[in-house]
Each structure stands twice: as C-alpha cells, then as structure tokens.
Design a protein around this nucleic acid. Structure first.
Lengths: 255, 255
DNA sequence: CCGCGCGGCGTACGTCGTACGCCCGCGTTG
DNA sequence: CAACGCGGGCGTACGACGTACGCCGCGCGG
C-alpha cells in the first residue's frame, strides 16, 4: 500500500460498505465472517499494537481465516481503515447538550481527546478526506448542536467546530507521540530529553539561540514533570474558546 | 519500513547527520554523493510526486547511482526524511520582527502555511517527535521572538507558538487533502461532492440529521466556490489570535 | 610504488498489499 | 430427492518496498 489511506476511486463502493447497504445473505448470517467481525478484529489489533501492526494477514489470522478471505467483505486495506474510523466515531458518547456554548464545546473537545487516547491509530489514519460514514455524520450533527442558536452563521458554526477539533487533534498527536516514543525506545520522555541533552547543549548554545535555549529549557522542565502535552491542550483550548467568545459576543451585540 | 518516520534508537547518529558533524573526506569532496545531494534529490521527488513516490530506489536513480549507495550517507529512510524536514525549515524566511505581536504571529502563521504548501509531504511526514535539527532550532528561536517581551512566561510563549503552528498545520492538511484528491481522482473538489451527493442525500436526510444536513450544505456551497480551506484557516487564525490577546491583555494589566 | 580503506553497489531476503483462479458445500430449483 | 450453480473461502504468486551483507576497484598516504 502506498499511503495510510488512499483516495478511493469508487465512492459508491466505499459508501456502500460504510453504510452497510448490503443485507447479509441467509448463508452467511450467524456464523462466519462479516464486515463487523473484521472491523472489530482490526480495531483490536490497531488499539493494542498500532497501525503498523495492522496487516491484512494479521486480521485474517486473528479471525482464524485465510488472508484473502478478508477481501470478500472489504475491497482493500484503505477501505477497512475507513470503516474502522467510522466505527470508532460510533462509540463516542452523545449526551444531551447542557450548559452554555462554552461548556458544551469544552465537553466536546474532551470527548474527542478521549477518543484519540483510546484509539491513537486514528491520528495517523485520518490524514485524508473525512470518511462520510454514518457515525461521522451523527457525530457532526451532534457536535453542531453545541454551537447552534448562538448567533453564528452556518459557515461559522462549521468553522468553529473545525477549529476546536483541529486543536484537539494536534494536541492528541503530540501526546500520542510521547506515549509511543516511550513504548518504542523504552525511555520515558524525561529520559529521552536527558539522552539528547549533551548533544543539544553543544549546538543550542545561549549565545547563538538565546530565546530558544531559555524557553526550550523552561518547556523541557515541564516535560520532565510529565505534563507537557496536557498543558498545551488545556492552554490552547482556553485560548481557542476565548477567541470564539469574541465572535459570539459580536454577534450577540447585533454585528 | 513500518511507519512514515520511526523513532530512532540512536539519537547520536541521527543528530550527527542533521548537524552535519562529519567533515567531508578529501576523497569525496567535490564530485560524488553527499548527504546534501541526496536530500536535495529526495525533496525534489517528494515535492513533485508526494511522499509515496519517495523510494530509496528512486533517490538512487535520480542521482544516477545504485540504491544501496544512498545508505553510505544516510542510515535509513526515516533519517533521510528527518533531514529533509530540517532542510525545508532552513529555506524559510526569517525577517526581522516588526509590528506588534499580533502582526508578527500572523506573519509567522502565513510563512508556515506557505512552507506546507510548497512541501505538502511534510504534513504526512511530521507525525512523530520534532526533528531537533539546526534549522528547526533556528526557526524556533526566530518564532519565539514574535512573542517575546509581551509579558508571557516562557512556558506560555512556547504554548502560544504551539497553538498557532498547530492551527496552521491543521489547516494546511485540509487544504492539501483537497489538492491531492483532485490529483488522484481527476475530479475537482466540487465534482467530488457532486458525485457523493446522491448517496449522501439518501442517508443524510434533514429529518434524521437536521443540523448536519443544513450546515453541511452551507459549508459545501463554500467548498464549491473553492475557498473552504482558506476560510477555515483565516477564521481559525483570527480566533486563535483573539484568544491569545486575552492572555496578553491580562498580563499587561499586571496579572 | 604498494596496500588498504572507503565509496559504491549487486544480490538477496523478508515484508507488505492484493490479483487470480480453484474448490467445496450449501440453498434453490426441477 | 437429486442436480446444479453460486458465492464464500483461500493457496499461490507477483511486484513493490526497505535494507543486510559482502564484494569490488579506485585513489590516497606511507
């Protein structure tokens, strides 16, 4: 495979699987393979060992089935990942909207962060166009509810959501990097910086890069205390919400 | 290779290449291969045809050299990509800081966006820990200059930069997706939505998903007019800067 | 002038996604 | 009740990929 998820030439095929258009034949119903069983197995593998471990062979193996049997239900790996993503969206909570818009948006941000923490592979899979499966649509609809009726235009509502979710994904990615760096190297984040420190000090001298070395040290100290990514998430989220509140106030003031 | 860029077990080796610690031998100086020639060729390939086309075989070919010769200068593909990334950072403009912090940050955001537009492969390559090469350090130092002396703590300065750059990367990714979807399918963004429309209308009915269908249509209309991602970038950037101005004002008011 | 070190590379291995065509057993039909 | 056809299941094979390994042959230091 070339990319993590390649553009599908045949949208109809992709959508048909996402929306489970095909009714199960009387033959296969009950036991045997199914898109759902395949997707479940694939998600389990990706959750436990990351996207790199997700192999068509592995999926078949996990289901006690030949590799090529998987292709009976799924056109290819790209489409499988698509369905995995949409399925993951499906398991998100969709509580009734409560509180003011800021509380609601904050809740949504945290729910999305939690999703990415449960399924870090999504951060590497979602690099191309959104999947347009049933659960993404439901999620979109639900999340739009958080910013409805506060005076924004439709386009602004979409932009606000995009902004917040983008921030969440950025933060989640940073956090996830720390985690799987620790898994890959066996070093904690602090130890990793320690091991690089001597090298860095050779080049990143205060006289050449005064600001970078000072701030880098300060930020590094935070990292050592192991709450770097969390801080970035919280700080950024509040800034983003502050920024949104400016528009909301403008609109409330009647332009 | 497993991931687009895997964690390197040997930081010293990676850093040595990034910082070009090895002095050229009298033998190889002048003609022949070099890390620089390899990196240049690799960037050209990735710029023109994307990360997927970047193959060790292709790189050797482009240099009129056997595949394995590349490995004399670079330990592996992951490290090559690392150097490519740092090199790309090196070609960014670093104008003297002018104007107030908001103007400066906005300038930085736009410069970074331009970088990603010139080298879209960076958006898919930079999934793991930052590269810590000389140009990234210089860039970091320069960009910190934009938020220095406005009353923020060191950690806050880092967080502000992270937030802005994160937004830029998110937006750039969306924009890039549109571009290479058009390249892969031969369809424009508008045509792509057109081709999905019948399917979408089957499921995304206003009665089931009232908000999603309405806002989706509105946002889609914008997309059709081909300025979706740009709008998201501009809108988000202003929101982020508004949010930052709140902290700056707080700090200026003496806490 | 000689030897050896290093730049350069041919071959080969293990991995991946997946095309292709076969088989077998079930549900349907006469 | 028997024959058939179809579709689920899969073994094999192919063409990528990254890269380990070991061999050359050139050019410089002694």
């Amino acid at each position: 495979m070339a990319s993590e998820r390649k553009a599908t030439a045949d949208p109809a095929r992709s959508l048909a699987i996402l929306w489970r258009t095909r009714e199960p034949t009387s033959r296969s119903a009950g036991q045997g393979l199914s898109v759902d069983r395949i997707v479940r197995a694939a998600i389990d593998i990706a959750d436990a060992e990351g996207l790199d471990a997700l192999t068509m062979r592995r999926v078949g193996e996990a289901l006690g089935v030949g590799t090529m049997s998987v292709y009976t239900y799924v056109p290819g790996k790209a489409e499988l990942v698509d369905v995995m993503i949409d399925t993951a969206y499906g398991e998100m909570p969709r509580p009734a909207v409560e509180g003011d818009w800021r509380v609601r948006l904050e809740r949504i941000a945290r729910d999305n962060l939690a999703l990415y923490q449960r399924h870090p592979w999504m951060l590497r899979a979602e690099t191309t166009r959104p999947v347009l499966g049933p659960h993404l649509v439901a999620k979109y609809d639900h999340e739009l509810g958080a910013v409805a009726d506060i005076g924004l235009t439709d386009v602004e509502m979409d932009a606000v959501l995009t902004l917040v979710l983008g921030h969440v994904k950025s933060s989640a990615r940073s956090a996830s990097e720390v985690v799987d760096l620790e898994r890959d190297t066996g070093l904690t984040d602090g130890q990793w910086w320690q091991s690089h420190a001597p090298w860095l000090e050779t080049f990143l001298t205060p006289d050449r890069y005064p600001t970078a070395s000072r701030v880098g040290t300060a930020a590094g100290q935070q990292h050592g205390a192991a709450y770097g990514p969390e801080y970035a998430f919280e700080f950024g989220l509040q800034r983003v919400l502050d920024g949104i509140s400016v528009v909301v106030a403008e609109r409330a003031a009647g332009r």
